[in-house]
Design a protein around this nucleic acid. Structure first.
Lengths: 219, 219
DNA sequence: TAAAATATTTAGATTTACCTAAATTTTATT
DNA sequence: AATAAAATTTAGGTAAATCTAAATATTTTA
């Protein structure tokens, strides 16, 4: 199955928005792809034709087995390129997402597998997300809980789920990266903001929005 | 100036076909790009609008200064990716051209320069072609002569000008690669074929077509 | 449950990069 | 130089992926 770049981007976004078997709505997908609902409807018809999604008028979208397979290939390429950019070309984690969005569309299994090998077959990308293997198997779905839900007070950063440059840059300047160990100083109930501290650094406060996007595990 | 992939491919091909100040013909460009002359005319109007080429009806095409600058950037990216694929991912020289055709369209100066650095700022690509530097300066235009013109009989392979998979595969199986030292056994006048030998290998004959595409220097 | 609000789809355009067929210009040949 | 051949351009069309505006479904709410 030969997919265009636009088709690949739709498949990837549907995969991202699909939680369990809940169908993805036209509006949600349009918002995610920064396009108009009418365009989504058009593309849905095409992807249904190609048997990559299940779609009935007004009923939302789900990936088929083939669609999921395709999505995992794209995600594999994306995350491997992110690893390459960070580990080999010394990019920082907030810079790699946009570049990987472009590199991921070079569809060559041989290239992908050689790249993986070159990187030592990494299991997670620089944001903490697992990398599907050549067969499209995802190690373990991320089971970390987000900082805003965690009960414990000594935590390690395992992943960041929002890859927007702005958030990652903010975390960078605060010294928060993968593997960073945090201490929760205070949780403020009125706005769910959290005061945290990294060893040898001044404490600082993050909003609920930010806390939701930081995945942690207790230490 | 933001160029589409199609525009970049036109610019690259015009650069390739331009020898001195001879304008590139519509037909030649159509053939090179595997498209129709009418399509070339369409694109020529657009590229003229963008001031990347000089073009007058029926008069052929030349790159402007800006056009040349753009071409050299694309060629830089192409050749750096070829180096990466061969040196880091162990691809053989006949496999890399197609992949580099895709990778070259990721337009990020930062990525390009980091990649160059990672590779040790190489000066030539796996086919022997020089790599433009970050400012778009080409080390030295290739001054090697092709095997079918050379007078000397002991020669070293400096480059291969036709990057078609078929030719490169043929040379590969014969043991001909960059830096290989050849001895000319015989030149046959009737068809301009040449019998050559590599040390410790049986001699073999190549056609004029092939000889034209092997760039050599005497040793 | 009927009206209002929201979500989705359809209809009809637009842009990019192609195409074919016909018209025009340039070049080559008698 | 006139005509034939070749090259190039124009005119009009197509497919992909968008868009806006209008029509239709679904969901919410009063």
């Amino acid at each position: 199955m030969n997919l265009s770049i636009a088709e690949e981007n739709y498949i990837k976004s549907i995969y991202k928005l699909e939680e369990g078997q809940e169908p993805v709505s036209t509006n949600a997908l349009a918002y995610e792809l920064d396009t108009k609902p009418a365009s989504v409807t058009d593309m849905a018809k095409k992807l249904k034709e190609k048997k990559l999604i299940a779609y009935e008028k007004y009923q939302g979208i789900n990936l088929t087995t083939d669609g999921k397979k395709a999505a995992l290939q794209i995600i594999r390429r994306h995350r491997l390129w992110e690893c390459f950019l960070v580990e080999k070309l010394s990019f920082s984690w907030e810079e790699v997402h946009e570049l990987a969005e472009e590199l991921e569309h070079v569809r060559s299994e041989k290239l992908t597998n050689r790249l993986s090998e070159f990187l030592g077959n990494p299991l997670i990308d620089p944001h903490g997300d697992p990398i599907p293997d050549a067969q499209g198997k995802l190690g373990k779905p991320r089971v970390q809980s987000s900082l805003h839900k965690s009960k414990a007070n000594r935590l390690e950063v395992m992943a960041v789920s929002d890859k927007s440059t702005a958030l990652l840059e903010f975390l960078n300047t605060k010294g928060v990266r993968l593997g960073t160990q945090l201490e929760v100083i205070e949780r403020y109930e009125f706005d769910n903001s959290i005061e945290i501290k990294i060893k040898n650094q001044p404490a600082f406060t993050i909003s609920e929005q930010v806390a939701k996007n930081i995945m942690v595990k207790p230490i």
